[in-house]
Design a protein around this nucleic acid. Structure first.
Lengths: 114, 114
DNA sequence: TTGCGACTTGAAGAATTCTGCAATTATCGA
DNA sequence: TCGATAATTGCAGAATTCTTCAAGTCGCAA
């Protein structure tokens, strides 16, 4: 084994762990998009966006192709979209769960353990 | 909106982006486990494991309960297991894809070190 | 109370990542 | 060719995260 799976997984998640990169992945779920487009929708400087795109590219999560003077990015696997959905589900649950916990705490003294 | 969703997502993924934390989550998928157990299976110092457990706890991904003198950790949502499966699927695809790429490169160029 | 095992916390230096600026490459049109 | 636009790269300082050590808490039993 060259690299333990858990380490590859950690690197993968770390790659996703940046607001700009997340926004890029969300936008690319609707289909390939030129950098110009991403730049118009994400509040970030061009060089910074390029840096974040490079991170995603190096990780193999997105691919880029040149079309004339514009560069178009796309998700390299549709599974990425599924992962984002799973993450959204978890986050929603967690936010709801924490809301409920807060509500319980408002009424009683002792929250029950998970 | 207190915190943009994409930022919450990024934080969530960043929380997962550490080898020890990944291993903890993998182990907890089989059910709750005492710290002692985790310590026996993961190669890491006790204080370091505690730090990583604290990160997961603060993020609300795991919960801890004390049972006598031992502390037991558990996943706070079964969805986490589903997320890990999705990640594994993507990684497997990507590794296979890169394996093919490597095979192609073997005839022409030299792959760069990891 | 004292001592011990299990676990956590605080803090500091090391290592990594992020951001913005300047410079660079690539393409297109005048 | 020159100039403009699109995008990337290199780099340095700022910010964040990691790792380790020392010290601390908690429960239990002598």
């Amino acid at each position: 084994m060259p690299v333990p799976l858990y380490q590859a997984k950690a690197e993968f998640f770390r790659t996703l762990g940046h607001p700009v990169r997340i926004q890029v992945l969300e936008l690319l779920q609707a289909g390939p998009r030129p950098v110009r487009d991403l730049l118009a929708e994400i509040e970030v400087e061009p060089s910074n966006l390029s840096q974040q795109l490079a991170v995603l590219r190096r990780a193999g999560i997105v691919t880029s192709t040149r079309d004339g003077s514009t560069v178009v990015y796309a998700l390299s696997s549709p599974d990425v979209a599924e992962l984002m959905r799973a993450a959204r589900r978890i986050l929603t649950d967690m936010i709801v769960g924490q809301g409920e916990l807060l509500a319980e705490l408002r009424d009683s003294e002792q929250p029950r353990p998970g």
